[in-house]
Design a protein around this nucleic acid. Structure first.
Lengths: 349, 349
DNA sequence: TTGCGTAAAGTTATCGATAACATAATGCTG
DNA sequence: CAGCATTATGTTATCGATAACTTTACGCAA
C-alpha cells in the first residue's frame, strides 16, 4: 500500500473535530473556563489551568477561529488586494505587511485584482464578508462605483498602498508619484538633456504610473521641453514590450537622448535594444527606470532607476492598521522616500 | 476639511452591519427565505425573490461568511503556505492557484514560512483554525513533529506543491527534482565536460534543492566524475551570493568547466563574476541555472536553465483540490514537465 | 369530492465559540 | 466575627447564518 493510499483512507475517515465542550468535559470544568484558560484572560487557578491545558493537549484541541470571531466580533483577518501576486513589486509590499502582522496574530487574506476594477470590487465584497480587521488596497487603480459603495459600508479601517498623493481611505503608505516624475525630470535637466521620451504600457490601468508620466511631462513643459510618449495599452509591462517600443521610438525619433520607462523590466528591455542598436548608455542616451527591482537580482546593472522601499511600505501600512485597531492616534499617511540610483557602466548581466 | 478627516469621521461612526434578519423584516419574509433566495436554492416564487433581492440591495446587505461557514460546515477558504511571497518562484505558483480557485468562489489564505519549520507549524495551526476547504503546502521543507501532528488531525484535503518525488499528503503537484538533477548531468555529459561544480545556499532549508544536488552528484559519480560543491547556509540564495561563491570556487578549482547553480538568481551572479574574470560562457565554462525565472524579465539571456511551469503547478494543485472537495476520483500526483532551455550567446542584459 | 404530491414559506435546533453577568468560595479588615 | 472585596467558576444569551424538518396552500388525478 502506497503512502498515498494509506493517507487517502485516513482522509476519508477524517478525525472528528474536537470542541471546547469536549475539552471542558474532559477537564471537568465549564466551556467558559476552558475558553478563558486558552485565551489567558480572567482569573483561573493555576491548578485548573494545568488540567485544562492537559486535556486540550491530549484531545488535540484546535480552536475554531470562525466561531471565535463571530462571537467576539473581533477579527484577526487582514484583507489585502493587490494587482498582481507574481509582480515582485507588489509581492514585496505583501511580504512587509505579513512580517508586521503575523507577530500580532493576524492572518492575511490575499486577493489579486489584475488591475481590473470589476475584479477588485468582487474581491472587496468577498473580503468584507469575512469581517476583516482591516483592508489594504492598492492606490493606483480606478475604483468602480460598486467598490466605492462597498467601501462606504465597511466597518473596518481601510488603507491605501503605493500612493500617498491622494487618499479617500483612512491611511495611505507609499511614494509620491508626482515627486517621482519630477525626480526623473531633474535627472535629465542635470545632464543637460532636452530630447526626452517616455515608454510605458497599460497606463489606462495603472494610475500611479500615469501620474508619474504626467508629472514628468509637466516638469519638462515648464522648462519648455517636449515629451515624446510611446505607450500601448494591450501589451504587458515587461521587458519584451520595453524593447519593442524602444525600437519604434528610436526609429521615429532618432534624436532622443533620454528615456524614462514605466518600470525596470521595460527599461531593461529598452537597454537591450539600445545596446544592439549601438547606442551606448549613458553616453549617447540616458535611461531611467522605476522601482529599483533590477537592483535585487543583478550584481551590477547599468540601469539608473528610482528605488522604492517596497517592504517598508508594507510594514508602515501594517503598523498603521495595528494602531488603528487600538484606536491609537496617527497621521494620515506615510510618504516613502524615493532614491535615485545611478546605474554603473559595467556590463550588465 | 481634508479628505482624510472627512473619512475618519465616517470611520468612527461606522455603519452597523446589516443582517439577514433585517433584510427578512424589510422584505416581509423569514430569514430562511432570504437565505434561500440569496444562495439560489430551494423553491421560492419569482415575486418573493424580487422583493428579497430588492430589500437586500436597498439595505446594502453583505453576507457574513464566518457565520455561513460555521453553520454549514462548508468552507470556501483555501490555505496556502509558501516559503516566501517575494520569491517570484512561489508567487507564480500562488498566482496559478488563485486563478483556478477564484471562479469557484474560493478565497486564498496565504502564509509565509520563510523556510522555517516552526513558523510553518504555527501557520498550519492558524490556518486550520479557519476550517479551510483545503491546505496547500510546500513540499521542499522539513516538517516539524508539531506540523505532522496537526496534519494528521486535519479534516480537509492537503496538497503538496513543488515536489512530486514523495508525498505524505493527498496529492502532489510539481517537478521531480531527481529528474532535474539528472537533466543537468546529461547536459554536461553531452558537452563532454568532466570538471563539474555545484553552487548553492541554504540547502539545509530547501530539501528540493538538496535533492537536485544529490541527484546531480549521483549521476556524475555513476559516470566516475567527481562533483565539487560550494555552498553556504547563512547567505541568501541571491545573485550576490552566487557571485561570491563562484569567485571562491574558481580560485580554488580553476579547472572547473561546468557549474550548476541552485537557482537562476545565483547563476546570474555567477555569470557576472565569470564575465569579469574573462572566462567566456559557454565556450570556456558551461553554466546551468534552475527555474527559468531569468527568462521572464530578460529579452535574451545567455543563461542555460531548466524551466519549470510554475503557474501550471499552481493550477493543477488547485484543480486537484476542487476535485477532491467534490469527491471526484483523481490520480495521486501531477508531474510537471521540466524543460532545459539553452541560453543564447547574445549579450545578456 | 377526496387524497396526495408538490410548491412555497416558516420553525426549530445548531454550528463553536465569547460577552456579560451571576454565583460560590475565599481572604482580609475593623 | 460581620461585612465586603477579591478570586474562581458557572450560566445564559448571543453572534449570523444554514440544515432539516414542518406547515400551509394549491392543483390535479381518480
Amino acid at each position: 500500500m502506497s503512502i498515498q493510499e494509506r493517507e487517502k483512507i485516513v482522509a476519508s475517515e477524517r478525525p472528528k473535530t474536537v470542541t471546547l465542550a469536549e475539552v471542558a468535559a474532559k477537564a471537568g470544568v465549564s466551556k467558559m473556563t476552558v475558553s478563558k484558560v486558552l485565551r489567558e484572560v480572567g482569573n483561573i487557578s493555576e491548578e485548573t489551568r494545568q488540567r485544562v491545558r492537559q486535556a486540550a493537549q491530549e484531545l488535540g484541541y484546535l480552536p475554531n477561529s470562525l466561531a471565535g470571531t463571530l462571537s467576539s466580533r473581533r477579527s484577526r483577518i487582514v484583507a489585502v488586494i493587490i494587482p498582481s501576486i507574481s509582480d515582485i513589486v507588489y509581492a514585496e509590499v505583501l511580504s512587509g505587511v505579513n512580517a508586521m502582522l503575523r507577530p500580532s496574530g493576524f492572518q492575511t487574506f490575499i486577493g489579486e485584482s489584475q488591475f481590473d476594477p470589476t475584479v477588485e470590487a468582487d474581491l472587496i465584497r468577498a473580503m468584507l464578508s469575512f469581517q476583516p480587521a482591516g483592508l489594504l488596497l492598492n492606490g493606483g487603480m480606478a475604483r468602480s462605483a460598486d467598490a466605492e459603495a462597498l467601501l462606504a459600508r465597511r466597518n473596518c479601517p481601510a488603507i491605501q498602498l503605493w500612493d500617498c498623493d491622494r487618499n479617500a481611505l483612512d491611511f495611505s503608505a507609499g511614494p509620491s508619484h508626482e515627486e517621482a516624475g519630477r525626480l526623473v525630470a531633474k535627472h535629465f535637466f542635470d545632464r543637460g538633456l532636452r530630447r526626452i521620451a517616455y515608454v510605458g504600457a497599460e497606463l489606462d490601468k495603472d494610475l500611479n504610473a500615469r501620474r508619474r508620466h504626467i508629472a514628468l511631462k509637466s516638469s519638462l513643459v515648464a522648462a519648455d521641453i517636449d515629451l515624446v510618449s510611446v505607450t500601448c495599452e494591450d501589451k504587458p509591462r515587461q521587458a519584451v514590450t520595453g524593447r519593442f517600443l524602444t525600437e519604434q521610438l528610436m526609429r521615429m525619433h532618432p534624436e532622443i537622448d533620454g528615456i524614462h520607462f514605466l518600470n525596470d523590466a521595460m527599461a531593461l528591455g529598452g537597454l537591450s535594444y539600445l545596446h544592439q542598436a549601438g547606442l551606448p548608455v549613458p553616453e549617447r542616451i540616458s535611461v531611467v527606470g522605476f522601482n529599483g527591482t533590477s537592483l535585487a537580482n543583478a550584481v551590477r546593472t547599468r540601469l539608473t532607476t528610482i528605488d522604492v522601499p517596497r517592504t517598508e511600505i508594507g510594514e508602515k501600512a501594517a503598523q498603521a492598521l495595528l494602531r488603528m485597531t487600538k484606536a491609537e492616534p496617527m497621521p494620515d499617511f506615510w510618504q516613502a522616500r524615493l532614491e535615485m540610483v545611478q546605474g554603473n557602466t559595467t556590463l550588465a548581466i
